[in-house]
Design a binder for these strands. Structure first.
Ligand SMILES: [Mn+2]
Ligand SMILES: [Mn+2]
Ligand SMILES: [Zn+2]
Ligand SMILES: [Zn+2]
Lengths: 138, 138
DNA sequence: ACACCTGGTGAGAATGATTTTCAAGTCGGG
DNA sequence: CCCGACTTGAAAATCATTCTCACCAGGTGT
């Protein structure tokens, strides 16, 4: 090859039973779920998908921006189908209930801070954890 | 025991060579380091400390608020000696260079959001990742 | 200095999440 | 159909972090 490279052709992505299954499982729940949970859930409902495939699919969906991924306080990655626009989450530490929140001011602030220090290719993580009103009444 | 409990006596914490070593190693570098890195570093300079001990010590320091802990984008926990007041970080994804940043407005905002949704016992994580000016000039 | 109790250590095994392997299965265009 | 490119998934491999547990050391009372 000399220079015949199509600008990073993003493979069309085939529609398979597995990918559909993961997407649907995700669409079905409202809060963050780990790859393991999705895998087990699918298995239980007789639509088994290999664990490796669940991980692969979840990651692609995340890269494609179709789902949000965040790490719980103990480092486990969890995914959730979310609205398209950029936002963050208020998550209940005990039941996982999630509220999407937006903060234009915060976005501006992080960008400003990064600029001020000459950092490029910036990204940020911002999550709020707490105990939801339901779980509060012990 | 009936009610003779001194409000959770926090054990005095013994000053051992190991604990000192970890603290010093941490004091010596300016950016975030993982437990593994600290462990290897100490080993290389002939002041070996068991990996398990490094993990234990780092966690205690973090609990005691003496060091900050955050998770890199791929989920690894890294520690750094920091100033006492609450703040966040602007971290270089490639070299680890760190800048401490404060944002009173952000703190207020997260508290307000949590209140609005009735969440209690709230905490938050906020980190900014990017490529520092030095690493930028590839 | 001495015995003793308790916290601290660390080598190695155990966990657990995520990744890699790679042989076998599936898709879709020609 | 037919082939090559994309997918799968069971099992093995990675890797960070935790646990076990026999052994060691700091602090305390004598
Ligand atoms: Mn944001
Ligand atoms: Mn803060
Ligand atoms: Zn809850
Ligand atoms: Zn850098």
């Amino acid at each position: 090859m000399t220079s015949t490279e199509p600008p990073a052709e993003s493979a069309p992505l085939r529609p398979t039973r597995q990918r559909r299954a993961v997407s649907e499982a995700l669409a079905a729940c409202d809060d963050f779920r780990s790859a393991q949970e999705i895998h087990e859930l699918l298995g239980r409902r007789g639509d088994p998908v290999g664990l490796a495939t669940v991980y692969r699919t979840l990651q692609r969906l995340a890269d494609a921006g179709e789902v949000d991924m965040l790490r719980t306080e103990d480092g486990e990655a969890v995914y959730r189908r979310c609205s398209g626009s950029h936002h963050h989450h208020l998550v209940c530490r005990s039941c996982g209930a999630t509220v999407e929140v937006e903060g234009p001011a915060v976005e501006r602030w992080t960008r400003a801070i990064a600029d001020r220090h000459g950092f490029a290719d910036v990204s940020h993580t911002l999550e709020i954890f707490g105990t939801c009103p339901t779980c509060a009444e012990s």
